[in-house]
Amino acid sequence: MAPRLQPIEKPDEPEIQSTYQMTRQKFGTVLTPLKVVTARMPESLGVNRELQKFREEIQLDSELKLMVGMLTSEINGCGFCVDLAQSETVRKNLRMEKFNALAEYQTSPLFSDRERAALAYAEETTRQKNVSDATFEELRTHFNEQEIVEITWLNAFQNYTNLVNIPLKIESDGLCAITQSETQLDHDE
């Protein structure tokens, strides 16, 4: 399915051209949100870079950060963000089986009580825009105050990116398949 706005393949802005080149090297393709959104709104590039950099500085372990983001994106139906999270999962050599079971996090033995608390909080926040006292207290039994704020921020950030992509019908770029193919080539060499 094509995005609602035609992707701009050859942007005029030198900084956007450079970003296209960098993402092509990193992901094997130019990301559709860059071609649809950033090419039309170059000012957003700096903001998005800073948000991504800030996301990387969050102290939670990378697997939990990815799970919170991917579950949020699955709930919202953001195919691009789910694909990006799966790609990152492969790139970081994490267990894809666990990420494929996110919809069953409440009952699957693959998840710890700590992970379930974070995922329940992210799910309830995404669906309701608020959480019950019980959900919050369960989260508090597993995480300190800084970690709670980090989970809250990650969930809000993921909802933000989902709300940029979904209305514009920005779907999967096949990033996970590209990453799996590159990973297989690395193992074959």
Rank of each mutant, 00 (worst) to 15 (best):
A2T: 13
P3D: 06
R4C: 06
R4N: 12
Q6P: 00
Q6E: 15
Q6N: 10
P7D: 11
E9Y: 03
K10M: 09
P11L: 14
E13W: 01
E13L: 09
P14K: 01
I16D: 02
I16N: 01
T19S: 10
Y20N: 09
Q21P: 00
M22Y: 07
R24P: 05
K26G: 06
K26L: 15
F27S: 10
T29D: 07
T29M: 14
V30M: 11
V30A: 10
L31G: 03
T32D: 11
T32P: 01
P33G: 07
L34Q: 11
V37N: 10
T38V: 14
T38C: 05
A39T: 04
M41E: 08
E43T: 12
N48F: 09
N48Q: 11
R49Y: 06
E50P: 02
F54S: 10
F54G: 11
R55N: 14
E57N: 14
E57M: 11
Q59D: 13
D61C: 05
D61I: 11
S62P: 00
E63P: 00
E63R: 12
L64G: 02
L64A: 05
L64I: 06
M67H: 02
G69P: 05
M70L: 06
T72S: 13
E74F: 00
E74Y: 05
C78G: 04
C81A: 10
C81H: 04
V82M: 00
D83H: 02
S87T: 00
S87I: 00
E88G: 03
E88Y: 04
V90E: 07
R91L: 12
K92L: 15
K92S: 08
M96N: 02
M96I: 15
N100F: 01
A101H: 02
L102D: 02
A103L: 07
E104R: 12
Q106M: 09
T107F: 07
S108D: 09
L110N: 02
L110M: 12
F111A: 08
S112I: 06
E115C: 06
E115T: 13
R116I: 01
A117V: 00
A117G: 05
L119I: 11
L119D: 04
A122E: 05
T125S: 11
Q128S: 13
Q128T: 10
K129H: 15
K129R: 15
V131P: 03
V131N: 11
S132K: 04
S132N: 03
D133V: 15
D133N: 05
A134T: 11
T135M: 10
F136N: 06
E137T: 13
R140G: 09
R140D: 15
N144R: 08
N144A: 03
E150K: 05
T152C: 04
N155L: 08
N155D: 14
A156W: 04
A156E: 05
A156H: 04
A156L: 08
Q158V: 14
N159I: 15
N159M: 14
Y160V: 12
Y160K: 06
T161M: 12
N162W: 01
E171W: 01
S172G: 01
S172N: 06
D173K: 03
A177D: 12
T179S: 05
T179N: 05
T179V: 14
T179H: 02
Q180A: 11
S181V: 06
S181M: 13
E182N: 14
T183P: 00
Q184H: 11
D186V: 15
D186H: 08
D186R: 14
D188R: 13
